[in-house]
């Protein structure tokens, strides 16, 4: 594993820690999109189907378990926890996320590395992850007061994607036959979705003003 990949996994983990900190400690999910969180839970469930069948490494297994457990517990907190759920900004989190699922599934049936259940589910999870941030970005645009933890959560998620691209570039030059169009194209699309957010996040940090996205 190269440094970019490890740094990518760590920023991904950090984003989850930041979100859990906000939800578990501050008991607030204000500014967080339940739609995006539900999509992530579905992404991890579909991608990690092989968790107990196909062993890669202890690191891999532990990280998969962490992402599965955290994504489902975040959804549980936002839906069921009696204090946290009251802070959920339901009225502004209106993105029709169900309409992302079917096109991603159709695309996975058409474009996959092998036409097997596991590979189709894997491709589906890659496509769905690429667009899963959309409800969160829409909610941020509608949020007048984006708190620091919410901004940091999305920033770390975006950083994780940038680092994964650097990891692929590194692997392309160091590993023979490392060509993976599905994850690369979907990963680049996913990263581009953060471009606008990154711009305003860095500007707000540079000018030391509160983060706000233009509607």
């Amino acid at each position: 594993m190269n440094a970019f990949r490890l740094a990518g996994d760590m920023t991904h983990l950090l984003s989850v820690v930041v979100l859990l900190l906000k939800i578990h400690t501050i008991k607030s999910c204000a500014g967080i999109s339940l739609k995006t969180q539900e999509l992530y839970a579905l992404v991890f469930a579909a991608r990690y189907l092989d968790l107990f069948i196909h062993f890669i490494s202890l690191y891999n297994t532990v990280m998969k378990l962490v992402f599965l457990a955290s994504s489902f517990s975040i959804v549980w907190y936002m839906r069921r926890h009696k204090i946290v759920r009251r802070t959920y900004d339901k009225d502004h989190d209106t993105f029709r996320h169900h309409f992302l699922v079917l096109p991603c599934l159709a695309l996975a049936l058409l474009i996959n590395e092998r036409f097997t259940f596991r590979e189709v589910m894997w491709a589906f999870s890659i496509y769905l992850e690429a667009v899963a941030i959309l409800p969160q970005l829409v909610l941020l645009q509608r949020t007048r007061n984006i708190d620091n933890l919410t901004g940091q959560y999305v920033f770390f998620l975006g950083a994780y994607r940038v680092l994964y691209i650097l990891n692929w570039i590194y692997r392309y030059f160091t590993e023979p036959h490392f060509v993976h169009w599905i994850s690369w194209v979907a990963g680049i699309v996913q990263t581009l979705l953060y471009a606008d957010f990154f711009y305003y996040y860095i500007m707000s940090w540079k000018n030391n003003v509160k983060l706000e996205l233009p509607a």
């Binding site: 996994d9 890669i56 490494s57 891999n60 590395e113 092998r114 894997w122 990891n167 036959h177 994850s183």
Partner: peptide, 10 residues
Amino acid sequence: SSNQRDHDEL
């Protein structure tokens, strides 16, 4: 692309 079978990335 055969090593993708292992899906070693998260």
